[in-house]
Write a protein that binds this DNA or RNA. Sequence first.
DNA 1: ATTATTTATTCTACAATTTAGAAAAAATGA
DNA 2: TCATTTTTTCTAAATTGTAGAATAAATAAT
Lengths: 121, 121
Amino acid sequence: MTSPNSSREGSLGELEHIVLLTLVRLGDDAYGMSVRSTIHELIGRDISIGAIYTTLERLQDKGYVRSSMGEATAKRGGRAKKYFKVTAKGTKALRAVRSNLEVLWQGIQIFGSLDGEFGRI
Amino acid sequence: MTSPNSSREGSLGELEHIVLLTLVRLGDDAYGMSVRSTIHELIGRDISIGAIYTTLERLQDKGYVRSSMGEATAKRGGRAKKYFKVTAKGTKALRAVRSNLEVLWQGIQIFGSLDGEFGRI
DNA sequence: ATTATTTATTCTACAATTTAGAAAAAATGA
DNA sequence: TCATTTTTTCTAAATTGTAGAATAAATAAT
Protein backbone atom coordinates (compact mmCIF):
# COMPACT_ATOMS: atom_id res chain seq x y z
CA MET A 1 0.00 0.00 0.00
CA THR A 2 1.28 3.43 -0.90
CA SER A 3 -1.32 5.88 0.37
CA PRO A 4 -3.34 4.78 3.39
CA ASN A 5 -6.89 4.81 2.04
CA SER A 6 -8.67 7.33 4.19
CA SER A 7 -12.14 6.44 2.88
CA ARG A 8 -11.96 3.52 5.24
CA GLU A 9 -12.86 5.41 8.41
CA GLY A 10 -16.14 4.23 9.80
CA SER A 11 -15.00 0.77 9.03
CA LEU A 12 -14.66 -1.90 11.67
CA GLY A 13 -14.09 -5.60 11.20
CA GLU A 14 -17.16 -7.67 11.88
CA LEU A 15 -15.89 -8.95 15.22
CA GLU A 16 -14.49 -5.57 16.20
CA HIS A 17 -17.92 -4.12 15.60
CA ILE A 18 -19.61 -6.73 17.77
CA VAL A 19 -17.10 -6.50 20.58
CA LEU A 20 -17.09 -2.71 20.66
CA LEU A 21 -20.86 -2.61 20.77
CA THR A 22 -20.90 -5.13 23.58
CA LEU A 23 -18.46 -3.04 25.57
CA VAL A 24 -20.86 -0.11 25.30
CA ARG A 25 -23.69 -2.31 26.47
CA LEU A 26 -21.78 -3.67 29.44
CA GLY A 27 -20.57 -0.31 30.66
CA ASP A 28 -18.66 -0.71 33.90
CA ASP A 29 -18.83 -4.46 33.86
CA ALA A 30 -17.02 -4.98 30.58
CA TYR A 31 -14.11 -7.42 30.67
CA GLY A 32 -13.04 -10.37 28.56
CA MET A 33 -15.27 -13.06 30.02
CA SER A 34 -18.37 -10.89 30.30
CA VAL A 35 -18.00 -9.72 26.72
CA ARG A 36 -17.79 -13.29 25.57
CA SER A 37 -20.82 -14.50 27.51
CA THR A 38 -22.91 -11.47 26.61
CA ILE A 39 -22.32 -11.97 22.91
CA HIS A 40 -23.26 -15.58 23.34
CA GLU A 41 -26.46 -14.69 25.14
CA LEU A 42 -27.43 -12.03 22.62
CA ILE A 43 -26.74 -13.73 19.32
CA GLY A 44 -25.75 -17.27 20.23
CA ARG A 45 -22.33 -16.93 18.76
CA ASP A 46 -19.66 -18.87 20.54
CA ILE A 47 -16.41 -17.02 20.20
CA SER A 48 -13.33 -18.42 21.89
CA ILE A 49 -11.99 -16.41 24.76
CA GLY A 50 -8.66 -16.10 22.99
CA ALA A 51 -10.38 -14.50 20.02
CA ILE A 52 -12.11 -12.03 22.32
CA TYR A 53 -8.85 -10.94 23.89
CA THR A 54 -6.92 -10.51 20.67
CA THR A 55 -9.75 -8.37 19.37
CA LEU A 56 -9.81 -6.34 22.54
CA GLU A 57 -6.09 -5.78 22.30
CA ARG A 58 -6.30 -4.68 18.68
CA LEU A 59 -9.12 -2.34 19.51
CA GLN A 60 -6.91 -0.84 22.18
CA ASP A 61 -3.97 -0.49 19.77
CA LYS A 62 -6.27 1.49 17.51
CA GLY A 63 -7.34 3.73 20.33
CA TYR A 64 -10.96 2.58 20.31
CA VAL A 65 -10.83 1.33 23.89
CA ARG A 66 -8.72 1.73 27.01
CA SER A 67 -8.30 -0.72 29.82
CA SER A 68 -7.72 -0.68 33.55
CA MET A 69 -7.18 -3.37 36.13
CA GLY A 70 -9.84 -3.93 38.76
CA GLU A 71 -9.36 -5.59 42.12
CA ALA A 72 -9.65 -9.23 43.02
CA THR A 73 -12.97 -10.29 44.51
CA ALA A 74 -13.35 -12.62 47.49
CA LYS A 75 -14.69 -15.60 45.65
CA ARG A 76 -13.27 -18.70 44.15
CA GLY A 77 -11.24 -17.80 41.10
CA GLY A 78 -11.95 -14.14 41.70
CA ARG A 79 -8.73 -12.81 40.32
CA ALA A 80 -8.50 -9.19 39.21
CA LYS A 81 -10.34 -8.33 36.02
CA LYS A 82 -9.13 -6.16 33.22
CA TYR A 83 -11.90 -3.73 32.42
CA PHE A 84 -12.37 -2.13 29.04
CA LYS A 85 -13.98 1.15 28.24
CA VAL A 86 -14.85 2.57 24.81
CA THR A 87 -13.04 5.83 24.04
CA ALA A 88 -14.47 8.85 22.25
CA LYS A 89 -12.68 7.63 19.18
CA GLY A 90 -14.31 4.24 19.57
CA THR A 91 -17.73 5.82 19.89
CA LYS A 92 -17.10 7.83 16.79
CA ALA A 93 -16.13 4.73 14.84
CA LEU A 94 -19.29 3.01 16.01
CA ARG A 95 -21.42 5.95 14.92
CA ALA A 96 -19.80 5.97 11.52
CA VAL A 97 -20.33 2.26 11.04
CA ARG A 98 -23.92 2.57 12.11
CA SER A 99 -24.51 5.44 9.77
CA ASN A 100 -23.03 3.55 6.83
CA LEU A 101 -25.13 0.50 7.58
CA GLU A 102 -28.27 2.57 7.66
CA VAL A 103 -27.52 3.94 4.24
CA LEU A 104 -26.65 0.53 2.84
CA TRP A 105 -29.78 -1.10 4.22
CA GLN A 106 -32.01 1.79 3.27
CA GLY A 107 -34.70 0.63 0.91
CA ILE A 108 -33.58 -2.97 0.83
CA GLN A 109 -36.56 -5.27 0.67
CA ILE A 110 -36.11 -8.94 1.25
CA PHE A 111 -39.11 -11.08 2.08
CA GLY A 112 -39.47 -12.48 5.55
CA SER A 113 -39.40 -8.97 6.93
CA LEU A 114 -37.78 -8.27 10.22
CA ASP A 115 -39.23 -5.02 11.32
CA GLY A 116 -36.97 -3.90 14.10
CA GLU A 117 -34.93 -0.78 14.00
CA PHE A 118 -31.52 -0.07 15.33
CA GLY A 119 -31.18 1.52 18.72
CA ARG A 120 -30.14 5.13 18.73
CA ILE A 121 -26.50 5.96 18.53
CA MET B 1 -9.62 -26.01 14.29
CA THR B 2 -11.20 -29.35 15.08
CA SER B 3 -14.95 -28.78 14.94
CA PRO B 4 -16.20 -26.07 12.60
CA ASN B 5 -17.96 -23.68 14.92
CA SER B 6 -21.55 -23.71 13.75
CA SER B 7 -22.57 -20.73 15.88
CA ARG B 8 -21.03 -18.65 13.17
CA GLU B 9 -23.90 -18.78 10.71
CA GLY B 10 -25.38 -15.37 10.15
CA SER B 11 -21.86 -14.07 10.05
CA LEU B 12 -20.46 -12.20 7.09
CA GLY B 13 -17.20 -10.32 6.87
CA GLU B 14 -17.66 -6.58 6.85
CA LEU B 15 -16.94 -6.24 3.15
CA GLU B 16 -18.94 -9.33 2.28
CA HIS B 17 -21.87 -7.74 4.05
CA ILE B 18 -21.52 -4.49 2.13
CA VAL B 19 -21.03 -6.14 -1.23
CA LEU B 20 -23.93 -8.56 -0.80
CA LEU B 21 -26.23 -5.75 0.20
CA THR B 22 -25.16 -3.73 -2.80
CA LEU B 23 -25.89 -6.64 -5.11
CA VAL B 24 -29.43 -6.74 -3.77
CA ARG B 25 -29.76 -3.02 -4.37
CA LEU B 26 -28.46 -3.20 -7.91
CA GLY B 27 -30.64 -6.10 -8.97
CA ASP B 28 -30.11 -6.85 -12.65
CA ASP B 29 -27.35 -4.32 -13.06
CA ALA B 30 -24.95 -5.80 -10.54
CA TYR B 31 -21.43 -6.45 -11.78
CA GLY B 32 -17.97 -5.64 -10.46
CA MET B 33 -17.67 -2.05 -11.57
CA SER B 34 -21.22 -1.04 -10.68
CA VAL B 35 -20.87 -2.56 -7.24
CA ARG B 36 -17.72 -0.58 -6.67
CA SER B 37 -19.14 2.74 -7.79
CA THR B 38 -22.40 2.27 -5.95
CA ILE B 39 -20.62 1.62 -2.68
CA HIS B 40 -18.57 4.70 -3.29
CA GLU B 41 -21.66 6.80 -3.95
CA LEU B 42 -23.50 5.49 -0.93
CA ILE B 43 -20.86 5.60 1.77
CA GLY B 44 -17.86 7.23 0.16
CA ARG B 45 -15.70 4.23 0.60
CA ASP B 46 -13.15 3.73 -2.11
CA ILE B 47 -12.55 0.02 -2.48
CA SER B 48 -10.16 -1.16 -5.16
CA ILE B 49 -11.72 -3.09 -8.00
CA GLY B 50 -9.47 -6.04 -7.19
CA ALA B 51 -10.88 -6.16 -3.69
CA ILE B 52 -14.41 -6.14 -5.04
CA TYR B 53 -13.75 -9.08 -7.29
CA THR B 54 -12.02 -11.24 -4.72
CA THR B 55 -14.97 -10.66 -2.43
CA LEU B 56 -17.44 -11.48 -5.17
CA GLU B 57 -15.60 -14.68 -5.91
CA ARG B 58 -15.49 -15.71 -2.28
CA LEU B 59 -19.20 -14.97 -1.96
CA GLN B 60 -19.77 -17.24 -4.91
CA ASP B 61 -17.62 -20.01 -3.41
CA LYS B 62 -19.82 -19.84 -0.34
CA GLY B 63 -22.94 -20.08 -2.43
CA TYR B 64 -24.22 -16.63 -1.53
CA VAL B 65 -24.22 -15.42 -5.12
CA ARG B 66 -24.16 -16.87 -8.60
CA SER B 67 -22.85 -15.22 -11.73
CA SER B 68 -23.57 -15.21 -15.42
CA MET B 69 -21.95 -13.54 -18.36
CA GLY B 70 -23.84 -10.84 -20.18
CA GLU B 71 -23.20 -9.74 -23.75
CA ALA B 72 -20.86 -7.12 -25.02
CA THR B 73 -22.42 -3.72 -25.70
CA ALA B 74 -21.68 -1.61 -28.74
CA LYS B 75 -19.67 1.09 -27.06
CA ARG B 76 -16.06 1.73 -26.48
CA GLY B 77 -14.74 -0.73 -23.94
CA GLY B 78 -18.11 -2.40 -23.80
CA ARG B 79 -16.84 -5.88 -23.16
CA ALA B 80 -19.16 -8.48 -21.68
CA LYS B 81 -20.02 -8.00 -18.04
CA LYS B 82 -20.16 -10.68 -15.43
CA TYR B 83 -23.42 -10.23 -13.57
CA PHE B 84 -23.96 -11.35 -10.03
CA LYS B 85 -27.18 -12.35 -8.36
CA VAL B 86 -27.77 -13.05 -4.67
CA THR B 87 -28.97 -16.61 -4.02
CA ALA B 88 -31.56 -17.71 -1.49
CA LYS B 89 -28.70 -18.71 0.74
CA GLY B 90 -27.20 -15.25 0.38
CA THR B 91 -30.49 -13.62 1.29
CA LYS B 92 -30.74 -15.83 4.31
CA ALA B 93 -27.25 -14.87 5.44
CA LEU B 94 -28.15 -11.22 5.01
CA ARG B 95 -31.28 -11.63 7.11
CA ALA B 96 -29.35 -13.38 9.84
CA VAL B 97 -26.70 -10.67 9.94
CA ARG B 98 -29.33 -8.01 10.03
CA SER B 99 -31.16 -9.75 12.84
CA ASN B 100 -27.98 -10.08 14.89
CA LEU B 101 -27.13 -6.44 14.37
CA GLU B 102 -30.55 -5.37 15.51
CA VAL B 103 -30.13 -7.30 18.72
CA LEU B 104 -26.64 -5.97 19.29
CA TRP B 105 -27.64 -2.37 18.67
CA GLN B 106 -30.86 -2.66 20.62
CA GLY B 107 -30.86 -0.21 23.48
CA ILE B 108 -27.47 1.25 22.71
CA GLN B 109 -27.42 4.95 23.38
CA ILE B 110 -24.56 7.02 22.19
CA PHE B 111 -24.94 10.78 21.98
CA GLY B 112 -25.09 12.45 18.61
CA SER B 113 -28.15 10.38 17.79
CA LEU B 114 -28.71 9.17 14.30
CA ASP B 115 -32.33 8.32 14.17
CA GLY B 116 -32.68 6.28 11.02
CA GLU B 117 -33.82 2.74 10.94
CA PHE B 118 -32.75 -0.12 8.79
CA GLY B 119 -34.73 -0.93 5.71
CA ARG B 120 -36.86 -4.03 5.90
CA ILE B 121 -35.33 -7.33 5.13
C1' DA C 1 -0.21 -26.83 53.75
C1' DT C 2 -0.84 -29.24 49.59
C1' DT C 3 -3.92 -30.04 45.96
C1' DA C 4 -8.09 -29.10 43.30
C1' DT C 5 -11.16 -26.07 41.19
C1' DT C 6 -12.64 -21.77 39.39
C1' DT C 7 -12.29 -17.37 37.07
C1' DA C 8 -9.52 -14.91 34.37
C1' DT C 9 -5.79 -13.29 31.14
C1' DT C 10 -1.88 -14.13 27.96
C1' DC C 11 0.53 -16.41 24.35
C1' DT C 12 1.12 -18.68 19.94
C1' DA C 13 0.29 -20.05 15.51
C1' DC C 14 -2.64 -20.38 11.81
C1' DA C 15 -6.84 -19.49 8.78
C1' DA C 16 -9.84 -16.31 6.59
C1' DT C 17 -10.78 -11.83 4.90
C1' DT C 18 -9.52 -7.51 2.99
C1' DT C 19 -6.62 -4.94 0.19
C1' DA C 20 -4.08 -2.60 -3.80
C1' DG C 21 -1.93 -2.69 -8.01
C1' DA C 22 -0.54 -4.70 -12.20
C1' DA C 23 -1.76 -7.57 -15.97
C1' DA C 24 -4.83 -9.22 -19.34
C1' DA C 25 -8.97 -9.19 -22.25
C1' DA C 26 -12.26 -7.38 -25.29
C1' DA C 27 -14.55 -3.83 -27.12
C1' DT C 28 -14.70 0.80 -30.16
C1' DG C 29 -12.37 5.15 -31.95
C1' DA C 30 -8.63 7.44 -34.33
C1' DT D 1 -2.65 -0.57 -36.51
C1' DC D 2 -2.50 1.85 -32.34
C1' DA D 3 -4.80 4.14 -28.58
C1' DT D 4 -8.31 4.32 -25.30
C1' DT D 5 -12.00 2.57 -22.51
C1' DT D 6 -14.48 -0.75 -19.76
C1' DT D 7 -14.07 -4.71 -17.71
C1' DT D 8 -12.19 -8.93 -15.42
C1' DT D 9 -8.27 -11.70 -13.58
C1' DC D 10 -4.09 -12.48 -11.12
C1' DT D 11 -0.77 -11.93 -7.41
C1' DA D 12 1.12 -10.83 -3.16
C1' DA D 13 0.69 -8.89 1.15
C1' DA D 14 -1.58 -6.71 5.34
C1' DT D 15 -5.22 -7.07 8.48
C1' DT D 16 -8.65 -9.49 10.99
C1' DG D 17 -10.59 -13.60 13.04
C1' DT D 18 -9.86 -17.95 15.32
C1' DA D 19 -8.93 -21.81 18.69
C1' DG D 20 -6.39 -23.96 22.12
C1' DA D 21 -2.85 -24.29 25.41
C1' DA D 22 -0.39 -22.02 28.92
C1' DT D 23 -0.29 -19.17 32.78
C1' DA D 24 -1.96 -16.64 36.81
C1' DA D 25 -4.37 -15.76 40.89
C1' DA D 26 -7.95 -16.46 43.72
C1' DT D 27 -10.83 -19.70 47.20
C1' DA D 28 -12.29 -24.56 48.56
C1' DA D 29 -11.30 -29.12 49.88
C1' DT D 30 -8.68 -32.53 51.94
